[in-house]
Amino acid sequence: MPAATSGGCRGGRLPARAGIGLRSAHFDAFTTGRPDVAFLEVHTENYFHDGGREPRLLDRLREHYAVSLHGVGLAPGSVSALDREHLRRVAAAVRRYEPAAVSEHACWGHVDGEHFNDLLPLPFTEEAVRHLSARVAEVQDALGRRILIENVSQYLRFRHSTLTEGEFLAAVVRECGCGVLLDVNNLYVNSVNVGFEPLKTIEHLPADAVHEVHLAGHLRREIDGQVLLIDDHGSRVPEPVWRLYAAVLEKCGAVPTLIEWDTDVPELGVLLSEAARADSMLEACRARAA
């Protein structure tokens, strides 16, 4: 059953169970029924507008499911000034939907007024820690709440990075008091693309700051005979990512876990079966801790 019932579940915290991303392909299923997922995540920018089908549907679902607002466009690591209008609209969505979690990405995305509408990576340096932390603090002040910051996928390594990804995220958490949304697929993709041991990164993470996990699929692409993994969110969670997820649960305990699927979205049953697998691992994690 959904995590909450007709009493409504505005605010609060995400349940430590599995949720899915709410995508338009499944609107009808959520309009006519109450699929069994613990929470729903939406891209904040899809709810910037006040009218139309999507906001009305989310208003209704909000009474039955915990909701996570996941921003993809604020890009707080950009050195250019924070986009105040974008932040104002995020704040309006937070006021309207009273989500259990609000997240953004540890990335940059615009420079000199030009937006690339992508989650561009930051170097893992002290300077980037200071900059991102200051911006996240600004966002948290504007929203009046703590937000989660997600690690992004990387297709390249900056020469002058001095920290590991885990150290970088831990430092940002220390500086601004945000939480972490750990995308386990991104962690795996990065470990292959850039070449590092992902279990080491997990060791560096502040376990008590990880408040949500993302699981997704990726694509293999060969360049000059070398494999790079593309974070396309277009397939089932691969086995190596499930194995890494098990290690994350070992370190962080049972954490709300999202099955993220954005391209070639399959029928709802496929997402629910992936969510059920995550739920069974979360249950086993709780049993071990008891």
């Binding site: 910037f48 507008h49 007024g113 937006h115 509408n117």
Partner: peptide, 11 residues
């Protein structure tokens, strides 16, 4: 007209 917004709906 490069994108001027983090909201793709605007492009």
């Amino acid at each position: 007209h490069p994108s001027r917004s983090g909201d793709l709906h605007e492009v």
